[in-house]
Amino acid sequence: MSNLPSIDDEQVETLIDDVLDQYGYDFTGYSRASLKRRLNRLYSLDKQVSFAEFRYKIGSDSVYFKRFVEQITVNVTEMFRDPNFYKTLRDNVLPTLATYPFIRIWLAGCSTGEEAYSMAIVLKELNLLHKSLIYATDINPTVLEKAAQGMFPLSQMKQYSENYIASGGKADFSSYYSANYSLAKFDVDLKEKMIFSTHNLVSDHSFNEFQLILCRNVLIYFDRDLQFKVLQLFDNSLDNLGFLALGTKETTDFSPISKRYKRLEMEKIWRKTVNEKL
């Protein structure tokens, strides 16, 4: 059996053009290596036999297109991922925002919602949840449906509990969910302050002003131009003195907005520092 990838570079470009024309989803600014790998993965997962058929199915079957978007975007996430990051949020960022009468938080690329529930738990423990709103957005409607349910595999809870403790959590993590067969269902009061909505970072505009924006492990899938465009979108959406948090391997460096942002020590969190007029 050949080990060669089924979809070549030219066919990747064909599919990108197709989905832009037919559905308005713009993947032209996505890093090709990862995109190509995801396309080949989907092709073999779904046991496709020819590129022509694969292309036709994507173009003609809107249900399959939904699966296409879900599978070629990366939706891997976990609760309290990078515990030190959450520790900084808990000890440093959120206490600073606590002085505000109202805290608006944007989780861009929230996937299945693990980060949103982690954030809600920290806000609750700091007694800030009642005056916060978490806008959790993703390009992909399917993951948002899952996020809104607030149910995650019970098998993950040991890891998440360890992450939670390492992030400075003092409560019993299991007090936040009830076991329901193989799932952990998180308390409904955690999602009272969450708003789930589709938002495409490539094509959609700023929709509010925030004090904190988190977008972790999304920019790595974009080329430089798109990264800068999205950082500009975040800049337009962030209050002065607001905080921007990126993934551990992502940065605002090299981008046009970098001069207005001062990085907090250790973590990939930047604070918007100066007035635009300066």
Partner: peptide, 10 residues
């Protein structure tokens, strides 16, 4: 293809 790295958290 331009001999740069990409990272992926899939």
């Amino acid at each position: 293809k331009d001999f740069t790295f990409s990272l992926d958290y899939s």
